[in-house]
Every structure is written in C-alpha cells, then in structure tokens.
Design a protein around this nucleic acid. Structure first.
Lengths: 349, 349
DNA sequence: ACGAGGTATTGCCACGTTGCATGCGACGTT
DNA sequence: AACGTCGCATGCAACGTGGCAATACCTCGT
C-alpha cells in the first residue's frame, strides 16, 4: 500500500539516504546500486509522501486560485487556463470560491489556508482597493482585475476603460445614439464595473452625447438572469434604447434573450455588445459581439508573476501592473448582415 | 511572518503542547491559560503549518477532481458544486484537467499526485471500463459517468439510457419522425455516448421506427463547434431530419446555431434537444430543451462516497452504483409556442 | 606497498505538529 | 490528617523526507 523510503531501502539492501538520492536524482549513486534501488522502487510502487516533502522543503507546490464562482463561463474558462499553465510549471491548483463574499476574500488574503499554498491568485469582487492594500500577507499574491493601489500585490487585467470605450464606440460608429449600459453594481466596492462605465461615458462624450442616468442600469449579480431582468426593466420603463453595452457576456446574453422575447430584432432594433469573450457568445443567436480579453495571457502572466515572487522572494521588484491585450470581436449582434456561420469560423481558427 | 507553535509558546510562557491544545481545542486547558495563549496566538498571527499537520495525521485534507476540461460549461458547473460541497466538509479541492488524454487518466488513477490527496473524483473519457477496473489505487476513487465493471470504485451518474430514451420520446411524441442523434465518439472507449445511443434507439424502436445509420452522427469532441460541424455535415448530406437529439448541450447549441444559420426555423423545421442542463441552454435563442441531471446531487453523493471510504477504510462496503435523478426540461427549441421569457422563469425559480 | 584523491554510501538531524503517558499540585472525602 | 482523584500542564517520540558532513571503500600513481 503505502511504501516509504524505509521500505524500499530495506528491500534494496541500502540506506534510506541512497534511495532518496535515487529518487531525487541528486548525489552520486553507482549505476548498479541505482538499478537495484529502481527495481525495488518499481516493485513496491513507491510514491513520495508529499506532506513530508513539503514540510522539509517549506514549499507545497500548490497555488491557490480564489474566484467568485466556478460555474460562470468566464471564470470557468480562466480557471481552466490557469490550471493548465500551472501544470506546465509543475504546480497544482487548489480552487476556492468566494461567491463575492467579502469575508471569504478577506480570509483568503490573510492566509486562511494555513501555509498550504505557495502563492495566491485572487479575483476580488467585493473588497475595496483600500482594503486589499491593508490585508498584508506572507505569500505572493496576484490580483486579477482589481488593483491594489498601495501596491503589495501584482495585478493582471485588461485596460477596462479603453476596452469599454472601444465597445461603445463601435456601437456609436454604427449609428446608434441611445446606448444603454448594463452592469453597474453600486453595492460592491469592486472597481471593474466603474472603469467600464468610465470608458462607456467617455466614448459617449467624444461622440458629442451626454450620458443619461436612465440608460445606466444596475444589476445585483452578473449572471444571465440579471441581464435579462435589467433589460426587462429597461424595456418596461419606456426608455428608448437602440443598443446595449453589457459589462459581461452573461449579462449580454440575458439581455439578448429578453430583447428577442419582446419581439424586437437584434441587431436591427437593438444592437448588443458583451464583455469577456466567452465561448457561448460565439454561438449565441445572433452571435454576440464582445470584448475578448486574452485569457491565456492573463493566466500565463499571473503565473509568471507568482513564479518570480516565489523563487526570488527578496528581489525587491516593485508590484507590477500588467495590462493584457484585448480585441473587439464583431459578430452578428451588432452587425446588420450576419457573417458566415460560426461553424465555418471555428474551422478557420 | 511565519510563527510556529514554538514562538507562541515562548511568548505565552507555556509549553508547545499547551498551545497545541488551545489551537486544536483538545485536552484540558485552564481558562486563564487559554486566554493568555489565545492572546499570543492573535498577536503573532499564528497559522498552523498544514504540511506538518498532514504529515502527522497521514491525511492531507485535499481531494482531487480530475475532469477532462474546466472550460466547458458542464464541467465548470459541476466542479463549482463539488468545490462548494467540499468546502462544507472542510476539504480542499485540487483540480486536474485530463483533456481526455488516456495517459493522464491512467496516471491520476495510479496516484500520480503522490499521496497528496485523500481521495479522487474522476470523470474518465477515454479509458475503457476494463482498464478502469485494473488500475487499482491506494486511495478511494469515485467515478463520474463511467462505470467500473469489476468494481473497485464507487460510481455516480444519471441513468443515461433512460434519460436519452425520454429525450427522444419527447421528440417522437411531438410528431417528429426523423430524429438525428449527434454525439457518437467511436474513437473513445467511454461508454456514456454508447448508453445515450442505446436509449435513443430504444425510443425509436418503441415508436415503431428503425434506427438509421445516416441519422447517427459522430463527433470528435463535445464542443459547440463539433456540434456545428456535425450539423453542417448532416444538412449538406441531404439526409432529411426534423429533429436532433444531441448528446450534450454544447453539441446541441452548435447544432442549433447551424440550423438557424441555414435559414431553417427551430423548432418548426428542426426541433433540438440537448443533454446536461447547462445554464446557457436556458438562455439560448430559442431556449434549449435539455436533460437536466441533478448536478448538486452528483457533487454531494460523490463526496459522501469519498467521506465514507476515507473515514471508514476497511468497512467492506461493496462499490456503490448511484443513479442520480434527472428531468427533461422542455423549452422553446422543441415546443412550438415559446414559453414565457426566461427572465420571468428565472425570477420564478 | 602505501598514500592521495575521489567516489559511493551513510548517519544524524530538523522541518512543525500531535498522541501518549506522565508529572505535579490542589481539592475533597473519610 | 492522610489518601485518592481529578484537572492541568508538560516531555518525549514519531510522521517521511532531504541537507549536511562524515566515513567507508576503491582506484590509481609513485
């Protein structure tokens, strides 16, 4: 069952230390001895005890990934990429879901897991930047999305202001003049929505329009049903809108669904743009125009940051603020003539 | 930074053992001592060293979750529920992605992680039942979906034959007579697709129809683009079909997209049914009828199995084969008259 | 044949924690 | 007053591994 170095050593007729050397490849071991030990290792099916190794090394080989929820497509896709990139670095990922609970986020930042993880990637939702800054930690932290202004942690994110501006501008360029924004979350301290709102407003102003409060719609969460509810409220309120910029694809898909169910046409009556570039967006009907952050790069840059901090602790590198590229992928939900079928597009990728 | 029991003991003027007792709540500690120790704990911000605790206890408090890919909505939703249920049991989940690679699945079953996890939940894709059975392991394993016929591992899954039968029957009851099946994977040894095919065929036969090979379409993977491709091939082949039963929601959404892009109406010309009950299905346009497994129950039953095996190792309970309930959720993609908007439905939940 | 210079192997210890057993003192009972 | 009991605190040991340094052994050169 559970064979230890001791058992292997006894079987091979050598000391524990020699077995350890064979396993780790360190030290000098005669070829004949190595072969004998290797045979014993194989016969007993030796597996190193990770806990003991961790205790000895002071490292666990684990990194934590704290996200609001795994079931939402954006975080599912991102988590998948992070797990994949971590595997390449021989790290294992443990996932925590905060569900946007500030206490959960606080606990994780303070190191609730015990020294179980060597580093933490966290995507905060409800903690304010100020609070993020004060929660010091004894392990490296990378923030996704939210910035830590006082800078104890690295940060990886798209340029939300710019991206939101581009998305809105795309709608304005197509002749839309009453563009609604869906996704404000006044009850949360997270700055992402604020920055997307900022980009939205700046695009309007540049086009000579004035942001109108009744076109800026709040949501409680970022799921499809919240987008649907906000869109229903917007339509029922009698406020005219010929386009919607939703702060997430899920919100956009909910809004899209509601628009169609109200008998309106997309994009002819209402154009819709989302944010996140989730795979669903590509296959929605009509396919959803969306801001696509380079998620693979988010994953890799975040892990690179962690690796640097973990392997060079006292390097004194100031906290990084990394902006990953994004692109606006234009599809049928804003384009009057539908493009080629998505199947063909997918094949061409 | 990293304070140990020793540091706390020195500060509180007691022995290490007493601090340990305070931390774990075990043993008898005088109230005054407890208070003093607690103060020292707080001041030093003590966090137990998980590695040492694990080494001592022989347990890690970690369970492994091995799934093909995290980015697909079904597995994302399922993984979220498993992480959530594990948190309630004070377990932490480490996630591995196999991408359906048989070697990766083999390695995990054989315990590649070292004794890092106390148990493993694995959703195999490409290992045959025979191979699953021979890969013994020294930790408890729960299989999702696929069965281990020789029974070393518990198994949790829906009744795929029955569910597929119900889905197909639903189409037949609505008057469809040429029902295509999309999702066969002849190159994989996984039995799930085979059982769904079996249910599909049995429903056809019961209705007096004969399964036709050209209506049974294969795919290489289970993503939207594969469904789109299979649907394109079906339409281009000239084979008439008035309904599609896809073996996963992703396939169904891809097929749906293609059908609409070919200028056909759903459900009037082609009705579509999926399988998995992912959230996207609810908000598709038209909303997708789908077989909804009780994912929360899958997560909880799987963890219950693990808990039983981990905490009562030699209990001698024979391997369990747990069928979790499912239901066919009928939506606009098979129903001639669209139901109420999804937003309203979501609010009514 | 003997010493020098390696090479191969090994013993010891510590990482931080907890189970077990024991020590010690105080209090209550007879 | 003496004894038993109980509550509280502590010391020792061990979980499995790897770094360090010492030792045993072996070969080669003189």
């Amino acid at each position: 069952m559970s064979s230890r170095l001791k058992d292997v050593a006894a079987r091979a007729g050598v000391s524990i230390r020699t077995v350890s050397n064979v396993v780790s490849g360190s030290g000098a071991v005669a070829e004949s001895t190595r072969a004998r030990v290797q045979a014993a290792l194989d016969e007993l099916g030796y597996r190193p005890n990770i806990a003991a190794r961790n205790l000895r090394a002071g490292r666990t080989g684990l990194i934590g990934l704290a996200i609001p929820e795994l079931h939402s497509p954006y975080f599912g896709e991102l988590a998948g990429l992070i797990v994949e990139a971590a595997q390449q670095r021989a790290w294992t990922v443990v996932i925590d879901q905060t569900f946007g609970d500030p206490d959960a986020e606080r606990r994780l930042l303070e190191g609730a897991g015990g020294r179980m993880v060597d580093g933490l990637i966290i995507s905060p939702w409800s903690l304010s930047p100020e609070e993020l800054a004060t929660r010091a930690r004894d392990i490296p932290v990378v923030l996704l999305g939210e910035r830590d202004p006082n800078g104890h942690a690295d940060r990886v994110a798209v340029d939300n202001v710019l991206a939101a501006d581009e998305a809105t501008t795309h709608l304005l360029d197509a002749g839309r003049r009453r563009v609604a924004a869906i996704g404000l979350q006044p009850h949360l301290r997270n700055g992402t929505a604020l920055r997307r709102l900022e980009g939205y407003r700046s695009a309007l102003r540049r086009a000579g329009l004035t942001p109108e409060p009744e076109l800026e719609r709040t949501v409680t969460a970022l799921h499809r049903e919240d987008g649907a509810r906000a869109m229903t409220a917007l339509l029922d309120s009698g406020v005219r809108a010929d386009a919607v910029f939703a702060f997430s694809d899920e919100l956009a898909l909910g809004a899209l669904h509601t628009v169609l169910n109200h008998g309106l046409r997309v994009p002819e009556d209402v154009a819709v743009v989302g944010f996140d570039g989730i795979e669903d967006a590509r296959y929605a009907n009509p396919a959803l125009t969306t801001v696509v952050p380079d998620k693979r790069q988010i994953a890799e840059r975040a892990l690179q940051c962690l690796a640097d901090r973990i392997y060079s602790p006292g390097a004194g590198v100031p906290p990084l603020d990394i902006a990953v590229p994004h692109r606006l992928e234009i599809r049928a939900s804003t384009h009057p003539r539908p493009g080629p079928p998505a199947g063909a597009a997918a094949e061409a990728r």
